[in-house]
Design a protein around this nucleic acid. Structure first.
Length: 202
DNA sequence: CACCGGATTGGCT
DNA sequence: GCCAATCCGGTGT
């Protein structure tokens, strides 16, 4: 059974717990007439206002971070290094700026569309094992920033009744946030143990 | 309005 | 393993 995640799931204030809870869920898109889906195998939590790695640290409200202050269940997509589009899930009630970065997915459906978008001919881990390339495989870019995830329209998340136990999850520091001082050491990166589709970063 | 640097990737040495 | 690619957000003048 594929159950669409409802708003109550995203409104949870505990973004770090949600980062773990999203492992094993399915990120689905229907973009340009192409249906694609993959299992979330790696995430990172970002929590304003105390997290120095968050774009919304100290509750900075700018044009870019505004969507993070909206209610949970929206997409936050931004351009990184001028090249890559990174997809986040906004969580928490309106006014709190929490988000979860999706860092890797295991392809499940619409693999032919993913291969085409990535200009690849055969499926392997490079199809979607990083935050900047899974968005390309799924057709996501900044055009979809702010999109609601609460309907099976363009972007949504499904619970397919996969249950993970705590020992199935690896917790470690987040990637690429060395500048974030004490926040850099927090174990807010989550991966499914033994899953071959996780990102290569340390 | 100029400058700095980034929640990354892939190609080349 | 190193490093260029490529652009814009955030900050300070």
């Amino acid at each position: 059974m594929e159950k669409l995640l409802s708003e109550s799931f995203y409104l949870d204030e505990q973004v770090v717990d949600l980062g773990e809870a999203l492992l094993g869920k399915y990120l689905c898109t229907n973009i340009d007439g192409c249906y694609t889906a993959g299992m979330i195998v790696e995430t990172e939590a970002y929590r304003a206002p105390d997290d120095k790695a968050s774009h919304a640290f100290d509750n900075r409200r700018t044009k870019r971070t505004e969507i993070m202050f909206d209610a949970g269940g929206h997409a936050y997509i931004y351009l990184c290094y001028g090249i890559h589009h990174l997809f986040n899930i906004v969580t928490g009630p309106e006014g709190s700026a929490h988000a979860i970065l999706i860092r890797a997915i295991e392809p499940a459906e619409g693999i032919e569309h993913m291969l085409h978008r990535r200009k690849m001919s055969k499926i392997n881990y490079r199809l979607s094992n990083g935050p900047g390339i899974l968005t390309k495989a799924l057709g996501l870019n900044t055009q979809w920033n702010g999109e609601s995830l609460l309907k099976r329209k363009n972007i949504w998340i499904e619970d397919r009744n996969l249950t993970l136990s705590p020992q199935d999850i690896i917790r470690s520091p987040r990637v690429g946030v060395d500048y974030a001082e004490e926040s850099a050491s927090w174990n807010w990166r989550f991966r499914i143990k033994h899953n071959a589709w996780c990102s290569p970063a340390k």
